[in-house]
Design a protein around this nucleic acid. Structure first.
Lengths: 128, 128
DNA sequence: ATCTTAATGCAACTGAGTCGCAAAAGTAAG
DNA sequence: CTTACTTTTGCGACTCAGTTGCATTAAGAT
């Protein structure tokens, strides 16, 4: 039980991620695949892939959920201190993982287990 | 025009904030004041107080919105690099502003304008 | 080829937050 | 204190992301 099956829908979604390095929002994916699969299927597959450690999710500016591929270097998927920050452009909305690590200070009386850090600004494309 | 009026509802909400140092979620406030004012009134007053620089808002773990009083020391309200982080307890949900500043590194090719940082863990009450 | 179990489609639902509009309450001027 | 003007509020309908139950479909192991 619990085996993840390689269905057409799963492959289609994985393809979308492997073709670009930026993150994709649930809304974008639901829209892009609305002719190929149901809305709930998109949500369910994303959830499954995250549980498998293939994707990781985070919240963007407006509270909507984004997903991005995990890579060994800067994404452990188990949300810990090594979680990387994300950057979202305030103009075009493009969102990406930042391959940097921000040192989080210890906070007295607080047992910090995970950190989520979202940076918002203008990307280089929109700045020019 | 544009003057903010000190209505009973506004005073009631401000009282709630001045009585404790932790942040309050919209849900908590809507529930607490459901007999005294309408749901939309709560949302509208919070929005107004944030525009006035009295409160600031941020997103908690589940995407719901939290508000907390601004104090001169660690809250500029204009979201900039000096925005402070917030801590939310994974067990009891208690959420607070952390009076520390986390240095955010420069990111090449990215014009970072604001940062939001949420730490999740166990608070001292729940740890004991 | 068959059978078991996971995956999907569909439609209804949830829950936070928003909006338009008429009624009510602040505030300033007379 | 009244009037006149403007902001606030209540209400109900609405939006929108995401979830759920259930019957049907399709992987993949035997």
């Amino acid at each position: 039980m619990g085996v993840i099956r390689k269905t057409k829908s799963v492959s289609a979604l994985l393809d979308a991620f492997s073709q670009q390095e930026i993150a994709l929002s649930t809304l974008e994916l639901v829209e892009r695949f609305k002719d190929q699969m149901n809305r709930s299927t998109v949500y369910r597959i994303l959830e499954r892939l995250e549980n498998e450690g293939v994707l990781h999710s985070f919240s963007g500016q407006d509270g909507i959920t984004w997903y991005a591929l995990c890579n060994d270097k800067d994404c452990s998927n188990t949300p810990k201190f090594d979680t990387h920050p994300h950057f979202q452009c305030r103009d075009c909305g493009k969102t990406e993982c930042l391959p940097i690590s921000v040192p989080i200070p210890e906070v007295s009386e607080h047992n910090v287990e995970s950190v989520s850090l979202l940076m918002v600004g203008q990307c280089s494309d929109c700045a020019s």
